[in-house]
Nucleic acid binder design. Structure first.
Lengths: 128, 128, 128, 128
DNA sequence: GTGGTCTAGACCACG
DNA sequence: GTGGTCTAGACCACA
């Protein structure tokens, strides 16, 4: 399904969270779609089920998925309200990263291109 | 010199690294300028010297500073050629962050504004 | 008859228990009134009969209903004497919840208003 | 420090969360006060450290405490902003519980008494 | 010594 | 079969 870097400094469960967040944001996984079961995924990736569960738990508390005992874990519907804080946070992160990128020689045009591409990915799956 | 958030979830040494990176990027600290000594800084900020040292080591391995035994640590000159990998890395991070931002409702125009502002900050110190 | 939230984190059978408790408390269901049969309800709500049965078992052990083999389940009459423990339990829960509410900024007057409203709901069906 | 019911239906870590929440709300534990270390508490209560950590992690994501690697876990300062949703949630819970209490024979006066007592507990530690 | 991550393996609750 | 909890025990990152 996707790759993990076991040598990375950031923990496996965090990488899982990021991957799933991306998949949900890109609408590859759609609202109410079922995620692979904890055990199945654990087996596929040869990872301990507890680690998967930790990732799922985190995703749940972030509002990206919901889990039901005995049934599975599912993509949560987006709630548009009150993303205010999230937006402020992400803008701050973006600012810092952009500044570093410019410093390294990335041009404004390069970044705009990244935006275009992201925008495209985001909307291509829109109506499906 | 600058502030640290001792309550933050990310480690102190990491905050130090980020602050110094920012100062170097903004040219507040200029090429070959001497950084405060480990001891001095540790005393000023009432922080464990080991923590400072770890930050300096990290900055050195990132190529932002160089250290000379018995003399101190200094801001490294930018080497444009070796940025290839750094640029690829940061572009990947940017892509992901931009996608998430767009998802949350930040507009392309918002991001371009962030770029402008970063650009401004970056060049305002240019000729000093 | 009523709605269930299949996405909720608390189990379906528990939601059923709560709904029935509410209906009995509000006297929508009156003493000795017959509850829908397990099969019927299961079919109506497209839910596993085992789940209904578990809810009924729970309601029975809580003293809200009684079941007669081959006849069905019925709303139990209130027995004032046996409430001692239940009252102690619920007072403890209330205390904790009230404390948390006050902490969050809910006022005494707010809570009294909630009591009034609950009281009203409770007695509006009284004489029917 | 406090008691746990190992037989209870709700998990140990949840009981821990509730206990600490109460202690923080009652100001028994004050802002920036250090909580017992994961290992220490685990040993004292003869509970697995992982379980304690799970409780602390939950408390952190709820905003009641913050944890710093290598230093410990501490009571977080209260942020008054945007408790709106929390208040709505708790009012709903209160309504339901009050209705059930009234049904069981608890009087309005009884509940008001509980409020008084909670209010007293809450403010007695205020200025310390 | 502190919190954080991960594994292995057991048992429970739910549907 | 599903998620959830708990234990035991190991190793890492931080200050």
């Amino acid at each position: 399904m996707f790759e993990l870097d076991l040598r990375s400094r950031d923990p496996i469960y965090q990488q899982l969270v990021d991957k799933f967040k991306a998949l949900i944001i890109k609408k590859v996984l759609q609202t109410d779609e079922k995620l692979p079961s904890v055990r199945t995924l654990a087996q596929q990736m040869t990872i301990n089920p507890n680690t998967i569960q930790k990732a799922y738990r985190e995703l749940e508390s972030l509002g990206f998925i919901y889990s039901i005992k005995g049934k599975g874990s599912f993509v949560a519907p987006m709630v548009e309200e009150e993303n205010g804080e999230a937006i402020r946070t992400i803008k701050a992160s973006l600012s810092q990263l952009i500044q570093e990128a410019l410093f390294l020689g990335v041009t404004k045009q390069d970044i705009i291109e990244l935006i275009e591409r992201a925008n495209h990915h985001l909307h291509s799956k829109e109506g499906e």
